[in-house]
């Protein structure tokens, strides 16, 4: 491993200043589960590594039913699923949080880091997309907020410019009768990368038998995690039925542009998009129906 400079910062401004001063050779370190491995194996190099775990804003998590979830970019997965109110409100995000790496990795790895690593197969990104999450990005010119589905632009690349830092992810509070799920397909049951990952979220009507809206997002079947907008939109207003789910799965398959690589053939991946879209929609509907009851119970 090559030598690099290391700086531990305590404010967002300090981080932005350091990042902006370098000519693109600065790297942000939060959990390090991607960065340190890449540096060690020579797949990436850095002149400066900026450790942001000392920045309170990046390590904080707030949730209320009004404002939703504000998730610091460096909060590790383990803190997410260990927080009972958050885990209960966002089972669809926890699907992803509990899948990334093993227990040790989950103690370090963050959703923010997963997003910035911009792997097409990232587990958290489809889950965030279907939750309508946004990313708060700080830079020399101030802060901006963009939908998560717009953050990744190519494998391993985001729209963040040199000098910019992902500060926070914002996830709207679950609406009544909202349910979401994320599932991935891997040949092994642990320690594997998604051959295909699919996130689905639905909001049902008061009777729980019609979709008010739905979102479907796909992983590992395009250069970036993908919002299959048409597939989700097609469900709006429709009765919850096998036929509707099948139609959405078919549209999700059409939205995918998978490649053949050592994890799977394009043909197999397209097939899995259909299978997992059906399975995640069914899981999301089930959660939406249960959430409906809980929500009503809360109101009483």
């Amino acid at each position: 491993m090559q030598a690099f400079d290391y700086a531990r910062v305590s404010t967002v401004d300090e981080a932005v200043r350091l990042l902006a001063a370098r000519n693109g050779d600065a790297r942000v370190l939060s959990g390090g589960t991607d960065l340190l491995v890449a540096l060690r194996e020579g797949r990436d190099s850095a002149g400066l590594v900026v450790d942001v775990k000392g920045v309170p804003e990046l390590m904080e998590m707030f949730f209320d039913r009004g404002g939703g979830l504000m998730l610091g970019a460096a909060v590790p997965c383990q803190r997410m699923y260990s927080d009972e109110p958050i885990a209960q409100a966002f089972p669809g995000l926890m699907d992803a949080a509990s899948l990334i790496g093993g227990v040790q990795v989950q103690g370090r790895a963050s959703f923010g880091g997963n997003l910035c690593n911009a792997s097409p197969a990232a587990d958290s990104i489809p889950a965030l997309i279907v939750h309508k999450a946004t990313a708060v990005i700080a830079g020399p010119g101030g802060r901006r907020e963009v939908p998560v589905e717009e953050v990744c632009v190519a494998p391993g690349r985001t729209q963040l410019q040199p000098g910019e830092l992902l500060v926070q992810l914002r996830i709207p509070a679950p609406e009544p009768r909202f349910g979401a799920a994320y599932q991935r397909f891997t040949p092994r049951n642990e320690m594997d990368i998604a051959v295909v990952g699919v996130g689905a979220a639905v909001r049902l009507n008061a009777d729980g038998d019609h979709f008010e809206w739905a979102r479907i997002a796909l992983g590992a079947v395009a250069p970036t995690p993908l919002l299959a907008a048409e597939a989700g939109d097609a469900l709006a207003g429709k009765a919850v039925s096998e036929a509707a789910i099948e139609e959405a799965a078919r549209m999700a398959q059409a939205a995918a542009s998978p490649i053949t690589d050592m994890s799977g053939t394009a043909e197999f991946r397209r097939r899995l998009v259909g299978v997992l879209t059906r399975r995640t929609l069914v899981a999301a509907i089930e959660r939406a129906r249960r959430a409906g009851t809980h929500w009503n119970a809360d109101l009483r």
Partner: peptide
């Protein structure tokens, strides 16, 4: 060799 790592060379894990 494309899969020279234990991530991509898939030996079974305990859950398998």
């Amino acid at each position: 060799l494309l899969n020279a790592s234990l991530l991509d060379y898939r030996m079974p894990t305990a859950p398998d």
